[in-house]
Each structure stands twice: as structure tokens, then as C-alpha cells.
Design a binder for these strands. Structure first.
Lengths: 336, 336
DNA sequence: TTGTATGCGTTATCAG
DNA sequence: CTGATAACGCATACAA
């Protein structure tokens, strides 16, 4: 009952190992009936092909690696989960690794994955990613945080943010703060540009009353809280009446900050987040946010790696549209 | 620059492939200097041993599988991340899979992992887990949701809950509601028993004034909200003055419910959660919660699978102590 | 201590 | 369409 190999199946079926192999990989050149019989034996014996042997010969591991900055971030968790589903549909499995937003660790993870001989890598670059020397010949698709020079797939952050800011503008807000992403990363810039797009379109002068209302922050709760404190620490008539945060976690941290300062939401401050994580509908009050189509992004990434879909051109990423989810953190501004 | 194999290294180092192999696996019987020289060549050439070939010979894949109900749950996400770290320290990698709390999917995932020839599996059983026929010979360690008959590792839920409930009792609460876990799972029961332990110890009669204050719910936000609604939908003098939730997500959902009912926290209702996820300190007000030592649990699970630590006896799990994190959702009860 | 040679379980190449 | 057989890249028993 221990190790049943392909030869056992072959013997019991009265065929050669070659035939069994062909059945296994449903090679077209096998009779229907023979395929059926051999298939039956395979099942009866509970035979499972050895992936190592298989991979050694075929040079295909049916493994794909995914490297993300932080699994604790619900957004990435959902990304990984979606990728796992998509991969499983094609008989592939996922190896996860965390870079902790640290370039050196990230490079190491990619090295590990390479030596693992995965068939491809889905990478969400760390914030201080500086063009790692990627192993040539190993398909890599950059996701969410696009990098110039790499084949990428992501949500359309720019237009997504614009959607959210336009919503605030329509409500009548004119001093709209913005918590941006960290550093000069592409997604941070994209989101910032979405903000600027909306502001400019709505007539820059009216919108930008007062000093710059932009704060830079990492995407986590705590950074959002600090940024919120910073933006809200000014006289009431100079303080933003609304804030757009570049992540839901930032937005939630910002809500904390507002609460600590005694600023009621949405009465005295409207907040819009970005990502659309499930938690957004559980905060008090419910967070208005821009939802990213994570599952679509993940599925597309997997499809590209498995050549089920043509890879996007360098510097011409595949983008998926975002959607505004109205919650309870937005309302018209109070008069000063 | 393409495929450099062990023979290339051997040739260039002027030794046999056997020696290179021994260096690779740091077999003791190799001269220090030879080891150094060969190691150098290996580095220079950027040689990476092929894991498939390696695994085929040695019967060790250096892969371990982890099956969890839902990666979107921050608790499991952290568990996976911790496991990944622990495994990496030993040169192992992690394949993640989600069961979506569905027994059939769970069985399928385990089958996949088995055929993948992973060296071990870390399993957080689904809620409707019914004793899956686990493949013999493959080490499996059940984590968090212990199952009778399996080698398990977890936080000490029972005493952890007790800690939280005792805190409420000390504050003066006597009508303490409890949101339990789903079904009749072991962890749900453990937590329930912790609750009962504390209540009984504090003198049952005084504590249990009124009808039973226990609501069953899944561990997610929404279920916590429903359970909260259920517990709070009664006359003020019968309604609990405090609620202990079996997960932080439940607790947050419950806060939502309280807010929707116009019940201020902690003034009219104290809430304590369980898990200690990072988000707990970002809610408004900050959630008081019982923190599980996830990292320790994950590390222990990995250690057991790699035989770095003796496996716990069946039905005699390894337990790690929890810790109470005081937030702002608890205060003495108001008089009725 | 080191070299030699064999086989791990499959797939792919050729014949037939 | 199917059978026989040679790799695949490495680890290990055995010989030296």
C-alpha cells in the first residue's frame, strides 16, 4: 500500500509506462477506450504521479511564487487568496513569501523562488524596490505597484482616486486633503495624479484654497493616523473638510486621529478610503471607499504567467476599473 | 550562462560530483579547505541545485503545506506569515491553500498537498471538518482549532478567555454576554468553557442574573454584528453590560451593532475581543482584547513538522499562554 | 576523505 | 497508436 508508481499501473493495465504517461497528460494520441481503462486503474490504485520526477523531466514545476510586502494587509491577503484560486483552476499551486517592504529581503525571496524553479512569479514590489536584477527567462508579472520596465497588471488607481475625489467635490467640498502613498512609488504617484486630476478639473483655484493639503504616509493604520493628525492640526477654517486616503487602512487610522481630536465624522470631516477591503463596511461609521477589483487582477496575473493570456507590453500595463462604494463617512461640508 | 549543473562545478573545482554534493549538504566528511574552495566555485558559478532532482533522490521536498479556512481573516494571515518566516529559517517554503471553511474543499486541498509530496501539513480545520481520512505517513499538525485525535498546537483559549472575562468581572460587571464560536468546534467550546470558568468562579448566582447571555456566531465581522444585535435587543436592565466576543472580528462587528442601537461604548457597554490582531488598536474606541501568541504557535508547528521538536501527544496539545491587552472598550458598568 | 556508479519516477524520442 | 529506452540532475552506497 505504500509507493505505487507508474510501472505498477502499466503492469496492471497490461500497457507500457509510456502509455500511462500519455494518459496522465492527456496526450491526444490515445484510444478513448484505452484511456478509460488506464484511467480506471490509476484511480483504483490511487496512483499519484511524483511531481519531482515529473518536473525533472518536463521542466515544469506547476508552482508559482507570489511575493508581497505584507500578508497582514487585508488587501494583499485577498490578492494572495484570489491568486491561489485562479492558480488552482489550472492545476498550479502557490508559494507565498513576504518581503516586509524591504528590498534586500525581497531580492532574497525572489532568489529562493528562482532556485525553487517556479514557473513564474507574481510580484508586488516593496516600497524601496530598486530594480532588482531579475533572473532572465523566469516570467515575472508585477502587480498593483507597477514598475517602469516591467510587465504589469493593476487596478486603475488614477481613475479610481479620481472617482472618490469627484464624489467629495460633488458634495461641495473645496478643501480636500490627500494622504498619499509612501515614497515615489508608481502607485503612490498614480493615486496622487488622480487626486490632482479631479482637483484641476473642478477648477483649481476654488478647490485649492489654502496651503497644500497633501501628506505622505505608508499604507498602514498607524501611518494613516499620523498623517491624519498632521492634516487636521490647523485652524478650523484652514483644515480640510474632507480627506482622501490612499488606502483603507490609512483611512481607518485617519478616522482614529479625527476621533481623538474630537472631530466628528462625517459632520465635520468626510473621509474616503481606497481598496475596498471587507473591513471597510464594519467601521463606525461605515467607510466610503473606492474598491479595487482584486480578483480580476489576480486572475489576470495568473493567466499571463500560464500563457493563457498575452502578457502586457512593458510600460503599458493592463488596468482594471475601480468602483466607488458609498458608505457613511461622507457628507456635505459644514460652513466654516 | 544558461544551465549550470553539479558536474560543471565539479569539473571546474577539479573534484567529483559526489564531493560537490557533499559540500552542498554539508556532510561532515569534507575537508575544511576543500569545502571552502568548492563553496567558492559554487558561488562564482551561481550554481543552484535543482530541487526536483534533489527531492527525487532524497525524498524530501523542503516544502510544507498550510491549509486555513480564510486568508482574509487577519488572524490566519498572520499565522501564515509567521509560519513562512519560521519555515524559511530552516530552508523550507510554504504552499498556502484556503478551505473556505468547507470540508470538501479542505479534503481536496489536503489531497493536492499530498500529491505535491510536501514534507508536512499545518492544518487549521474548517468548521465543518469531519475527520478527514488523512494520508498516513504524512506529518500533520493541527493548529488553533484543535481536533480530538490529532497532534495539535494552539493558544490556551480557555484560560485566555477566562482572563478577559475576569477583567470584566473585576470591573464590576455581572451581566456578561458571550459571543461564542460557530458550531461545536473545539476552540469554540474551549472559549465557552473559559467564559463559564470565570463566571462560576465569581459566584454563579450573582453573575448569571437573567436569561442565558450566550449567542453563537461565526468568527467574522457580520456574524459578530448579528450576535451583538441579538444580545442587545432586550430591556436595558436585562441587557448585558459587557460582552466578550470570541474573535476580534466579532467584537468589531458587535461594536457596530451597539453603535447602530445607540449604545455608547464603553459607557453603557464594555466589549472584549479575542485574538489580538493589529486592527484592534485602530478601532474607535480601541478594542480591549486577549492576544494570542500566533508567532509562537506557528514556529512550534513548523518545528514539530521538521522534527526540531517532539510532536505533542494526541489529545494532549501544546498550549501557549494568552495575554490581556487593555484598550478603551471596557469600563465599570453603569447602574441600571 | 574522496571518487565512481547506480537509480530515483517520469517524459520524450524513436521505432514498430 | 503504442512499446522500448534513454535521459533529467542529483544523492548515496560502495569502493578506493
Amino acid at each position: 500500500m505504500s509507493k505505487v508508481g507508474i510501472r505498477d499501473v502499466a503492469k496492471l493495465a497490461g500497457v507500457s509506462t509510456g502509455t500511462v504517461s500519455r494518459v496522465l497528460n492527456d496526450h491526444p494520441s490515445v484510444t478513448k477506450e484505452l484511456r478509460a481503462r488506464v484511467g480506471g486503474i490509476i484511480n483504483d490504485l490511487g496512483y499519484l504521479p511524483d511531481p519531482s520526477a515529473r518536473s525533472m523531466r518536463s521542466k515544469v514545476s506547476r508552482l508559482i511564487g507570489i511575493v508581497i510586502p505584507d500578508l497582514t494587509n487585508p488587501f494583499f491577503a485577498e490578492l494572495v487568496q484570489s491568486a491561489e484560486q485562479a492558480a488552482a483552476n489550472h492545476g498550479y499551486n502557490i508559494i507565498v513569501m513576504t518581503s516586509f517592504d524591504h528590498a534586500a529581503k525581497e531580492a532574497d525571496r525572489i532568489r529562493q523562488l528562482t532556485s525553487r524553479k517556479v514557473d513564474g512569479i507574481i510580484l508586488v514590489p516593496s516600497n524601496d524596490f530598486h530594480t532588482i536584477k531579475l533572473p532572465k527567462g523566469l516570467p515575472i508579472v508585477v502587480v498593483d505597484r507597477l514598475m517602469p520596465g516591467y510587465s504589469g497588471i493593476a487596478a486603475d488607481h488614477r481613475n479610481g482616486v479620481r472617482l472618490g475625489v469627484e464624489h467629495l467635490l460633488k458634495l461641495g467640498h473645496r478643501r480636500i486633503g490627500f494622504i498619499s502613498g509612501p515614497g515615489h512609488s508608481v502607485p503612490a504617484n498614480d493615486r496622487l495624479r488622480g487626486y490632482l486630476d479631479a482637483i484641476e478639473e473642478a477648477d483649481g483655484s476654488a478647490a485649492m484654497a489654502g496651503p497644500p493639503l497633501i501628506a505622505e504616509a505608508a499604507f498602514d493604520y498607524e501611518s494613516g493616523r499620523s498623517a491624519g493628525n498632521y492634516l487636521l492640526a490647523r485652524a478650523r477654517n484652514e483644515r480640510p473638510t474632507a480627506i482622501f486616503a490612499s488606502s483603507d487602512q490609512q483611512a481607518i487610522g485617519c478616522m482614529r486621529a479625527a476621533h481623538d481630536l474630537g472631530i466628528p465624522i462625517p459632520a465635520a470631516l468626510s473621509i474616503v478610503g481606497f481598496d475596498g477591503i471587507p473591513l471597510a463596511s464594519m467601521t463606525t461609521p461605515r467607510l466610503t471607499t473606492v474598491k479595487q477589483p482584486i480578483q480580476e487582477v489576480a486572475a489576470a496575473a495568473v493567466a499571463v504567467l500560464l500563457n493563457k493570456q498575452t502578457a502586457p507590453e512593458l510600460d503599458n500595463p493592463i488596468l482594471f476599473a475601480c468602483e466607488l462604494l458609498k458608505g457613511e463617512t461622507t457628507s456635505p461640508p459644514q460652513p466654516d
